[in-house]
């Protein structure tokens, strides 16, 4: 029973690691950013998952409702989402410039060209 209760977390861990793998294993700069995105979104899911209370509702106060889910992680994740999109935007802007400068967005090709310098 207890393990079932943790199953949700385990799936989240698998999601996180998928994103993490994409970041570190892939050569393509855009795909790395995609990986970062997935990694971050998975962490968001992790937070929201821990905020859930069984039988609770969204934390908007109303008459007659006793149990609410935890609002604090929601707040934190709202912040984190914005941080995430900010990072993505900057990362992509850099990718555009790198493409201008090197003519490629594959990491190993860039490295080869840097070593020639």
């Amino acid at each position: 029973m207890e393990f079932l209760g943790l199953l949700n977390y385990w799936i989240v861990v698998v999601l996180m690691m998928t994103g993490f793998y994409i970041v570190i294993a892939h050569n393509n700069l855009v795909k790395k950013i995609v990986g970062l995105n997935i990694f971050q979104v998975s962490v968001f899911v992790f937070y929201i998952t821990m905020a859930k209370v069984k039988g609770g509702t969204a934390p908007i106060l109303a008459e007659g409702i006793e149990i609410y889910s935890n609002p604090l992680p929601h707040v934190l994740i709202l912040t984190a989402i914005v941080v995430g999109v900010a990072t993505t935007a900057l990362g992509l802007a850099l990718v555009v410039r790198i493409h201008d400068a090197y003519g490629t967005i594959e990491d190993d090709e860039i490295e080869a060209r840097e070593n020639e310098l």
């Binding site: 968001f44 998952t49 905020a51 859930k52 929601h74 989402i81």
Partner: peptide, 10 residues
């Protein structure tokens, strides 16, 4: 999971 605000933003 009851996080409507977050869902909206995401």
């Amino acid at each position: 999971l009851d996080a409507v605000d977050v869902a909206f933003t995401e």
